[in-house]
């Protein structure tokens, strides 16, 4: 959104959005995931995994969700990673039984509900459509953007089980794009945890609270499914590169640069025209939605 702002203001011609991190041996990622947040540490409460687990537990109480829903997300995304040679989990299959035998980390989350910690980097370039037409790769246009940041501290909130920022951000992005969800061919959702995918799609309006269990059933998000989600494997099964994992995958899919996982005849999916991407920060405290179009 800031990139569009500086381009529109004429401050520059191209904006590079980049991220790189040696997460597996540097300590920055661990500090974020496990670090001390004020006096929470006095009670043994640390980091992102437990914060999201707290939100997910409240969600289990308020609507019909839990491991039966999250298993379909973990297993479905792994099938995409198995088509992506760059994915950390390319060579490792995951079955439903594998999901349930994954050890508890902070219950209700198992290890398989958690994203990866990765070494690597991602980048994409934002410019005007006019300039993009002169460049080497096919044009992908930003149709709509929305951001919403509802709370400074999830523990103090009265709506821990949603709606999250995805509700208002998704609506803003769809309104700007002038489309409904039925025009979306695939989604690239920020998936720090399995539950994040469910609550984000739920708040966008793909299904009503608790109907995710049925919506995800039958391979909905998998190769050949009716709504492909996180087609690189995502943060759960490709690599953790912040919001650039979903965003760059959306762009690459629309450019047709995704190899064996390219949506279309290879995966028995529709060749995508419009892809919805999300980013998310804090413990569900800030949210961004991007809608991308081919051409």
């Amino acid at each position: 959104m800031h990139a569009v702002g500086v381009l529109e203001a004429g401050l520059c011609k191209y904006v590079l959005i980049s991220y790189g991190h040696s997460g597996r041996w540097g300590e920055g990622m661990l500090r974020m995931l496990l670090g001390r947040n004020g006096d929470d540490a006095v009670f043994g409460h640390f980091g992102a995994s437990a914060g999201y687990a707290m939100a997910a537990r409240r969600a289990m109480h308020e609507f019909n969700t839990g491991p039966e829903t999250w298993e379909k997300i973990a297993v479905g995304q792994r099938k995409w990673a198995n088509l992506n040679p760059r994915a950390m989990m390319y060579d490792r299959k995951m079955t439903t039984a594998d999901y349930y035998s994954s050890p508890w980390v902070v219950e209700p989350f198992r290890l398989a509900d958690n994203c990866l910690v990765a070494d690597g980097g991602r980048a994409c370039i934002v410019t005007t459509v006019e300039r993009a037409r002169d460049l080497r790769h096919p044009v992908v246009t930003i149709m709509g953007l929305g951001m919403h940041s509802p709370s400074a501290d999830l523990a103090g909130s009265r709506y821990m089980a949603g709606p999250t920022g995805a509700r208002a951000a998704g609506k803003a992005a769809l309104d700007m794009a002038g489309i409904g969800l039925d025009a979306v061919d695939a989604c690239e959702i920020y998936d720090c945890f399995t539950y994040t995918v469910e609550i984000t799609l739920q708040d966008y309006g793909f299904f009503r609270p608790g109907e995710g269990r049925d919506w995800f059933a039958g391979g909905t998000i998998e190769p050949g499914g009716r709504m492909p989600v996180n087609t690189s494997g995502g943060l759960l099964s490709e690599a953790y590169q912040m919001g650039l994992t979903p965003l760059t995958e959306g762009v690459m899919q629309l450019m047709g640069r995704c190899g064996d996982r390219q949506l279309g005849p290879k995966t028995n999916n529709k060749t995508p025209e419009i892809i919805l991407c999300s980013d998310n920060g804090g413990i569900l405290q800030s949210h961004a939605c991007y809608i991308l179009r081919k051409g």
């Binding site: 540490a41 640390f46 707290m54 537990r57 409240r58 050890p103 902070v106 219950e107 209700p108």
Partner: peptide
Amino acid sequence: YSYVIYHVAYDPSFKVDLP
């Protein structure tokens, strides 16, 4: 309002309390 059960001690001093 909500709760979680720790099965991993992110700080070693909590290991004795698990879960």
